[in-house]
Design a protein around this nucleic acid. Structure first.
Lengths: 341, 341
DNA sequence: CTGAAAGCGCTTACAG
DNA sequence: CTGAAAGCGCTTACAG
């Protein structure tokens, strides 16, 4: 199958390749009769422009790369659909790059843009705060990158971002648990180096401290943001001499695992132990009992991130832009009750 | 930020661009002293090869495109990790293209390959069985495409594929329900035009028929493979004059919604109604009660699909290859019991 | 409205 | 081991 090139079309139609190109890219510049001849030739040859050549020539690809940690994470369903809503009407295609929780260094991110495979990048995944400095602060600012959902490392704070106030949200969640009378509140965090959960942990610690409670290190267990990790972490927490009366998980995925582990241990949620999640994924409301959690406006985050990126691509790069903070919301369902003790 | 080109490096190092190119692509062909000069020049200029130019020149991209219906679908976590395990050791990058349940026509798929944006394609998503015929049967066979998980339309049956025997698996699931004494078994299907669920539905019908039970159309409700769709479908089923004693859902996602709707209706699973899923995603075992379902070897499917694709890319295209069938397995947990009636 | 020509940045036989 | 040169397929000022 030797694919037809623009030359074959030109030869068949009896015109120059420039004219064929114009028929495709700005047909209004071509006389009707010529255009029809060319279109017929395109049909006959089965010609389709070589995207590789075109991208190269134009120096751009019309694609936006979305970097996310893991396909199969229900939280990203909403974010993606927000991104897509905007990209659909802007003529960009979306391609997704999965990191599988390998933190990306700044350099790898930079390489993606420098290599021109995408015109812009949306980062929804964590990345190492310790990228080696190939890119100067100046050139870094020039890359069309926008960060969504996550707090970001100091190396990346030159980039625009949109996310909720994770510290405040986690504090609010913890305060709700406190308001229900809990004192022994444990926290299941993500990977120790994840900035996102570090912020949520900070909110938790802050609220505990303000309530005059010493949240020592054995109030905190790492669940790696995964279902299995949370099950393990919960088991550890429950086996302590003085187990918690409430567990706050840094995301809903872990809250699902946590609830399961509690029940598997013969205890009841929320009668024996209360569980609080974070994200409000589609599963939160169908948990048994339905999960009390923090809602993140996933679609809105997606839309705003994409708008922001289009701005970065099309306008002058903004300098030192502040993060856009979108509102979160505490969703009270039935996985939290007053402690029985 | 004007990025350095190969010319800048050549000038600075005092060599030709051919030599710079060789230093990058086959350094062993270059004398040590020259290579060092060039490497120093690369460092100073911050040069990084323009991937667009390179891809264009080479006529290939070293990327594999994975087409899947939806990021955020837990089933694909395993398939992707199988694919990645193989691609990692083969030097290909993975890019993901999400269809959001818009069925892709054969033409769109073909366009992706013809346009050369990827060297090969893995299709994990449904596609319309009615692609218009831009591609002849011959040329179609030439595209490096492998299909995973799904049964496929007749237009696409020239492509290699790897999946479980969906008909047999669904039959087995239904037979298990029958063996527990159920007669009034409902089925929640996907989109009416989804080939995948059509096969599962076929297995269900087959088993029912063999048991001498008339599974009329009101035993079947469409849930669109989504959580919300299944909740709705379950409500409809429960409101029938003669509600089912067991519900077989075409995937686990719907089984989760189904169980929720049953409980929300004040009924108990499995005491009042049994629920059977399909896929055995990571959530199946943490459902309450844990979900009885069909296990698909997701990782293995991913690995095999990727191996198959590498074969397609690197070797001669295979003609009329048979689908690879991987084994499924009935996983008995606690969402199915004997009917109470 | 159309064509001849330059050039995007690279790779790779071909000579030497 | 290295360089000069052709060429990948397209787009786009520039002339006419």
């Amino acid at each position: 199958m030797t694919t037809a090139s623009i030359k074959d079309v030109a030869r068949l139609a009896g015109v120059s390749i420039a004219t064929v190109s114009r028929c495709i890219n700005s047909p209004e510049q071509v006389r009707d009769t010529t255009r029809e001849k060319v279109q017929e030739a395109i049909r006959q040859t089965g010609y389709s422009p070589n995207t590789l050549a075109r991208n190269f020539r134009r120096g751009k690809t019309q694609v936006i790369m979305v970097v996310l940690p893991s396909v199969g994470d229900p939280f990203f369903t909403g974010v993606m659909s927000g991104i897509r809503a905007v990209s659909d009407e802007s003529g960009y295609s979306l391609l997704i790059n999965e990191t599988q929780f390998n933190t990306m260094t700044e350099d790898e991110i930079g390489a993606m843009v420098v290599s021109k495979l995408a015109d812009g990048i949306i980062l929804l995944a964590s990345m190492s705060p310790f990228g080696t400095r190939v890119l100067s602060a100046e050139s870094r600012r020039a890359l069309p990158i926008v960060i969504g959902c996550e707090a970001i490392s100091s190396e990346l704070d030159a980039f625009p971002s949109v996310h909720i106030d994770n510290v405040a949200a986690a504090r609010e969640a913890t305060e709700y648990l406190l308001s229900q009378g809990h004192r022994k509140i444990a926290f299941i965090s993500g990977q120790p180096d994840s900035l996102l959960t570090r912020e949520r942990e900070e909110g938790y610690r802050h609220a505990m401290k303000e309530a005059g409670i010493d949240a020592g290190n054995d109030c905190i267990a790492s669940g790696g943001l995964t279902l299995g990790g949370a099950i393990e972490a919960t088991r550890v927490l429950l086996s302590r001499k003085d187990p918690p009366s409430a567990i706050f998980c840094a995301n809903d995925e872990m809250a699902m695992g946590c609830m399961h582990a509690i029940k598997a241990n013969g205890l009841s949620v929320p009668r024996d132990i209360s569980v609080m999640g974070f994200d409000d994924t589609r599963y939160a409301k169908i948990m048994d009992p339905p999960l009390t959690t923090i809602y993140q406006p996933a679609e809105e985050i997606g839309e705003r991130v994409m708008y922001r990126l289009l701005h970065e691509i099309e306008e002058e790069r903004s300098h030192g832009s502040k993060p856009e903070i979108v509102p979160h919301k505490l969703i009270i369902r039935r996985s939290v009750a007053r402690p029985s003790g």
